[in-house]
Nucleic acid binder design. Structure first.
Lengths: 233, 233
DNA sequence: GAGAGCTCCAATGTATACACTGATTACGAG
DNA sequence: CTCGTAATCAGTGTATACATTGGAGCTCTC
């Protein structure tokens, strides 16, 4: 594998899982020594991350972007537009078989979630596979690209939300409804069920994500636009 | 301005206006000599174009992507999802003033289009400004990014469609309705009017765009997936 | 003559040297 | 002490040299 790809994947993973916190400055020389490659592949990786929206490149030095509460709302607005459309297209065009398989797995989700922590990874794998299946079934390469970009940011937000088992069980039910709608070739229901799911998911995310601008914050702090993750010194 | 930016803009412009036809192979050394810069900025430009979806980088050599009829349909599906949402958000949140100005300009569009060729550029400027105003009014940075990506590809398709004045006059009317809906803060109407406009626009694009797979094409040619623009030798 | 393997080369991937720019800091004048 | 200016330098932007890889064409064998 190319060094630039390794650098990109490493940095992206570290940003998504929070190892590199928002506000972290990524300097080319520093990262190249840390990752054991030269500046050239690091530069390519950084440009890619900028294109992904995970890094901000205004002027000197690339900075890991923050995720504000407004960003969460904005992202969910975009997700709704994209995923509702994708679900509708999948209902119209999709093959049944992959969704039948996912339906069976979703039916077992409550048992998984009853296990607590160890069941979380397999549960999210089902959800991710559903996303992939819908993307595939929609048969639209432009939509697929947009969805992948959105999934990247969703992964970051997922980390910020508390995973309470009750919410996840409810989410599994919402996913199940989407799958049923696709299998029934009911595009409108698939679209609306997606809308409902994202609405519930956003509500939960906003309720559990750390607050940007706590009540006692001074006016000047609020003006700066508070964000999740540590402030730069 | 940075050499890499110049290289990117030059190549992008040439791809969008058809100077670089689909299938054209963009080799780093060749382009660097042609553009008068070294390989480094050319590489960055090419990576950016790949991210934009204007260039395909599978294996050796970057190739300007083709635009198939399926791609046109796919792009319009994505546009509908994004632009309908954007129009709805603009109706909810937008400031009136920019849309009042655009409304006035749109009212003059028929006169512009009556001039024939010389009126085309100013007409499209109004449309582009409307797009920008909606993007701005929607106040959603993620949506804005997605819209910009879509506009890039739309610009290519616009070239492929014959501009018959009758269609453009009708389009101006459709745009006007979208603006009125936003000014009336009627999100649903703005969304649906956008849907209508894109439907009409797609119909026109498909009717006037050159066919992919002409009737007399052999089976093997059809299997390869015919596309607009010349085939590589 | 056809096929497999090999050789050579062209093009990309990576490293590094050089150029430039903008920010910071130290110094001097007021 | 403060403000302005200049010098320094850290870090990015660009060019180029070197490494690697994948493929095209040739040859040799069967």
């Amino acid at each position: 594998m190319r060094a630039s790809d390794r650098a990109y994947r490493t940095l992206r993973t570290e940003i998504l899982d929070g190892t590199l916190e928002p506000g972290t400055v990524l300097q080319e020389v520093e990262q190249s020594t840390r990752l054991g490659v030269s500046r050239t592949p690091v530069r390519e990786a950084l440009r890619q991350l900028v294109a992904d929206g995970l890094v901000d490149a205004s002027g000197r030095g690339a900075v890991v972007t923050a995720v504000s509460r407004d960003d969460i709302v904005s992202l969910y607005e975009l997700r709704e537009a994209l995923e509702a459309k994708a679900a509708a297209l999948a209902a119209q065009r999709g093959e049944a078989i992959p969704f039948l398989l996912i339906r069976d797995r979703l039916l077992g989700a409550p048992q998984l979630l009853a296990q607590g922590e160890p069941g979380l990874a397999p549960y999210f794998e089902i959800v991710d596979d559903l996303d992939d299946a819908i993307e595939e079934a929609a048969g639209n390469p432009f939509l697929a690209t947009a969805l992948r970009s959105v999934q990247l940011h969703s992964a970051r937000i997922r980390r910020l939300s508390r995973h309470n088992p009750e919410r996840l069980r409810a989410a599994a039910g919402e996913h199940l409804l989407i799958v049923e709608a696709i299998l029934a070739r009911d595009a409108e229901l698939a679209s609306h069920a997606t809308h409902v799911h994202l609405h519930m998911s956003l509500t939960n995310a906003l309720a559990t994500a750390p607050a940007d601008a706590p009540a006692g914050t001074s006016a000047s702090d609020a003006d700066e636009g508070a964000t999740l993750g540590p402030r730069v010194a």
